[in-house]
Design a protein around this nucleic acid. Structure first.
Lengths: 122, 122
DNA sequence: GCGTTATATAACCGAATGGTTCTATACAAC
DNA sequence: GTTGTATAGAACCATTCGGTTATATAACGC
């Protein structure tokens, strides 16, 4: 059933996404299949550099490549991105509750303890 | 208003998240503030190694540190994780529609164009 | 077969990464 | 003030990363 994404893991996925060139390539591929030369065009880096980036993306399961004459067109494979989204989603309540949450919580706890101490020693 | 996350960028965030030790640290911090020694306990790496990981997380805006006696407790700061979630979310339709989508779409487009061509030349 | 086009591979380089050990700093407790 | 504890920093090391140039492979057009 799950043919893609079998060997994907968060380490490789996050590492692949940490490079802006690779994220740009993914963004381009979101518009549809593209060959290496076409993907390389927007960047000022050499073709072999682009090939390396593509290999990283491929190993991370983020793209797949087929054959079409001399060209090796790439397609986006978004499976690992779902894993990323799911992973991040587990922290949603932390960004939704704001960054002062723990402070507030701990502060409240402290005040409660003080109040309790005052009561106890009274 | 947005005090955290000012200098955060996806490069640093993704790079920080690419290490399993650092993700484990974040998971631990989701349960609340913790000191370095406590964070180090589950891992077989040295204390300075943990300090280095914490510095990476701090530079990525994923944690903040305060002072409490000798200890430097860490707190989770989930802002950058929201950015990650938002970024990945833009690709949702790609993982939802399955990996054959583009093929199907392009094939359909091609058929439509052919049909149009036939009509035009008629 | 021959040249052209598209891509991959190899060899190399400098910088960054993730780990180590050893040492320094800061604070607490005595 | 000395000792102990928590943490950071410096120096080092091997590996990885992102780039380069030069070369190899593969398929097409003639």
């Amino acid at each position: 059933m799950v043919l893609y994404n079998v060997r994907a893991n968060l380490n490789e996925t996050f590492a692949a996404l940490a490079d802006p060139t690779r994220r740009a390539i993914l963004a381009r591929l979101a518009c549809g299949e593209a060959a290496v030369m076409e993907l390389a065009k927007p960047f000022r880096i050499s073709q072999p550099a682009v090939s390396k980036h593509l290999k990283v993306l491929e190993r991370a399961g983020l793209i797949v490549r087929s054959r079409k004459a001399q060209s090796r067109p790439c397609r986006l494979r978004a499976g690992p991105l779902k894993e990323v989204a799911d992973w991040a989603e587990r922290y949603r309540r932390y960004w939704e509750q704001g960054f002062e949450r723990l402070d507030a919580y701990l502060g409240k706890l402290q005040r409660l303890e003080k109040a309790h101490a005052r009561k106890s020693t009274k």
